[in-house]
Write a protein that binds this DNA or RNA. Sequence first.
RNA 1: GUGAGUGUAGCUCAGGCCGGUAGAGCGGCUUGACUGUGGAUCAAGUGGUCGUGGGUUCGAGUCCCAUCACUCACCCCA
Length: 423
Amino acid sequence: MRLTAIRGTRDLLPEELVRWRAVEETAREVFGRYGYREIRTPLFEATELFVRGVGAGTDIVEKEMYTFEDRGGRSLTLRPEGTAAVVRACLEHNLFAELPVLKLYYIGPMYRYERPQAGRYREFWQAGVEAFGSDDPALDAEVILCAYDFLTGLGLRSLTIHLNSLGDEERQTYVQALREYLAPHWDRLPARDRERFEKNPLRMLDSKEEITRALIQEAPQVLDFLSEKSRHHLETVCRLLEREGVPYRVNPHIVRGLDYYTHTVFEVTAEGLGAQDAVLAGGRYDHLVEEVGGRPTPGVGFAAGVDRLLLALEAQGVAPEPGPELDLYIAVIGEVRAEALALATRLRRAGYRVDLEFLGRSLRAQMKTAHKRNVPLVALLGEDELREQRATLRDMRSGEQRSVSLEELIPAVAQMLSHSNPN
RNA sequence: GUGAGUGUAGCUCAGGCCGGUAGAGCGGCUUGACUGUGGAUCAAGUGGUCGUGGGUUCGAGUCCCAUCACUCACCCCA
């Protein structure tokens, strides 16, 4: 049988990578403006890191991890998300001691064993930021601001920022209240939501079951259970976002699937994506560092799904013009390949992107290739030209053509390129 | 993990009910009309283990079973 990319993974071909790189560049640029520095961690880690970091009871850990044993009998897992590994690296290299507020970003593939569907892959890319060391709500606001600048910087429109707070210690009180409210309705609950009721009642808040949704309408709200301090934290975040002109909606039904969140949680959805419309999500995680084995260190961050961002950009018709991949194509006629290669080398070392003919095809075929590749300039090198140590330069846009001595070729190329490309 | 739909040329798809020599449109490449010049036009050439494996049959793209993949939704999440 023919070998193919395995389920849920895919190849990114040269054409698509133009857009991928644009997204990555925007991420680096915007994150850099907010003071984040890049970190890269391994694609796999000790399984235990994710069990402790993400949470033993979460779906991610229970049924979605790529876990395997290496030849030394260690249990390893392909990272299902980025935050836990970043925390591990910071602890290992004592980065928290270096700066009182430590800001790091990452871009890379993550792995989850899920059924693939629109906007969901088993190997998918995330770009995320983590800010450690401060529990100031201004940092939460700044992280959301950074996310907002990133998304709008990509050209995305029709975004909704959902904001909520899960509080901290009071979360347990709320969960209990939610259970007490729902318990009398047990008989009416769909099987799925009964499971949630037992395992993770917060999940019922974003249930898609009609009956549950109706019940949730009347249910006690997280926001009413927040402590004075937590409420103040949320209010400050809101006030700062308003002041900076970031549109958001407080949505008490936003819950996250990872256990480590406290206080602020947020999710950004984009239009045109189908069922998987969350394009970026994050929040505060004040206990995660401790959970992974460090001293108590607050943190806040987000992760954006690069694959989904690209789908959303496509759905919203935001397509950057690709621009030519080559500056010049050398068309070769007759036995002049050594000279053609030498010419290409000279031009390349002068900084131009150059390709040339290797198949000995007709000039017509070569011109077609140059045209198809959208090359602005073609240098014609044949035995006639070579005798006089000259080449013919053709501007593919205007059709204008002139003979240039090989010595003056580079300045002539520079001049013709600047002409045909007036920006 | 659950459910539904779909796999035939590079792309979009017909053929399938009712088994009998694999097709169309678009695109790619090569050559020519046009001796060393792209875009437009025309002509010729070039392309498929019908997802894979098995079964039924004299004969399977077509019927049956299995399997893999894709799509969408659930679930979950970025």
